[in-house]
């Protein structure tokens, strides 16, 4: 029940990337994405090289390409937006595949698409090579407040339970002949949401009592500690360091 999310996100493996402590990977990915965002947009080659760096990380981690591609659909809504940019932006008009579009808009669309896609792939690789539980430990190691990490771990633990409850409510509605066709049926949907809230809240109260009866006094026991050595930090730097070199070159060329 609690493993539902990790099934979808985590790709089990024992590669060098999998074995790295989570905090190293988090810092590496965040630095990488920051560098990518800071890269001037007209240095097209730089983004190609970033993609090569990410592809080699994926190869080392043995994360199959279909897994990455499938999860990239989160980007879709925003892809539509990027495609509109060349048409609504100001600036000089240019011919592009037979369409008259704004040059600045075209460059803007490329900028958002390239950087957004690299960021999404980097995040997917992080989640695919790190178990959610371990990733939470990494966040705690990076001094995210312990309470915040606890809240996140409870959310993770119960997201599937609450989601399952919602699913059963939907089946119950539909088996009674309900079908939400237009706004008039909104009341029924909202009543389900209200019931779901009450159930979630009451479950939270029960979970709290269960914790108290097991001796909870405000902090969770640390069962596994994930310390990182200098060597592991250096290994993790294999992602942002080449990116930094690429970015510095790109900046010097503009």
């Amino acid at each position: 029940m609690s493993g539902g999310h990790s099934d979808r996100l985590y790709v089990p493996g024992a590669s060098a990337v999998h074995r790295l402590p989570p905090q190293c990977k988090l810092v590496a990915v965040l630095t990488f994405v920051l560098i990518v965002v800071a890269t001037p947009r007209d240095q097209f080659w730089a983004f190609g090289l970033y993609a090569v760096v990410l592809a080699s990380v994926a190869a080392v981690a043995r994360v199959p390409a279909p897994v990455i591609l499938r999860r990239m659909v989160v980007e879709l809504p925003f892809l539509v937006f990027a495609l509109l940019l060349p048409f609504v932006s100001h600036g000089e008009r240019v011919q592009f595949f037979g369409l008259t579009v704004s040059e600045a808009g075209l460059l803007g669309a490329w900028n958002v698409l390239a950087k957004g896609t690299l960021g999404v792939v980097a995040s997917i690789l992080l989640a695919a090579t790190t178990e959610p539980r371990t990733l939470l430990l990494g966040l705690e190691r990076l001094h995210l407040p312990a309470l915040m990490v606890q809240i996140m771990s409870f959310m993770f633990r119960y997201a599937d339970v609450i989601g399952g409850e919602m699913h059963r409510m939907r089946i119950a509605r539909e088996s009674r002949g309900f079908q939400a066709r237009d706004v008039r049926q909104l009341r029924v949907v909202a009543q389900s949401a209200g019931a779901l809230f009450i159930r979630s809240y009451e479950r939270g109260e029960r979970v709290h009592l269960a914790m108290l009866s097991r001796g909870y006094a405000g902090s969770m026991p640390v069962i596994v500690d994930v310390r990182a050595g200098r060597g592991q930090w250096l290994t993790a730097a294999a992602l942002p360091m080449p990116a930094l070199a690429i970015a510095v070159t790109a900046w010097s060329l503009t």
């Binding site: 309470l147 606890q150 809240i151 996140m152 771990s153 409870f154 959310m155 633990r157 119960y158 997201a159 339970v161 609450i162 989601g163 409850e165 919602m166 949401a193 779901l196 809230f197 979630s200 809240y201 479950r203 939270g204 109260e205 979970v207 709290h208 914790m211 108290l212 909870y216 006094a217 405000g218 969770m220």
Partner: peptide
């Protein structure tokens, strides 16, 4: 108080589902 972690966690799970 000490209900923060489970309560906020469950409410977050609710928002996530909703």
């Amino acid at each position: 108080d000490d209900r923060t972690a489970p309560m906020a966690g469950l409410v977050a799970a609710f928002i996530f589902a909703a």
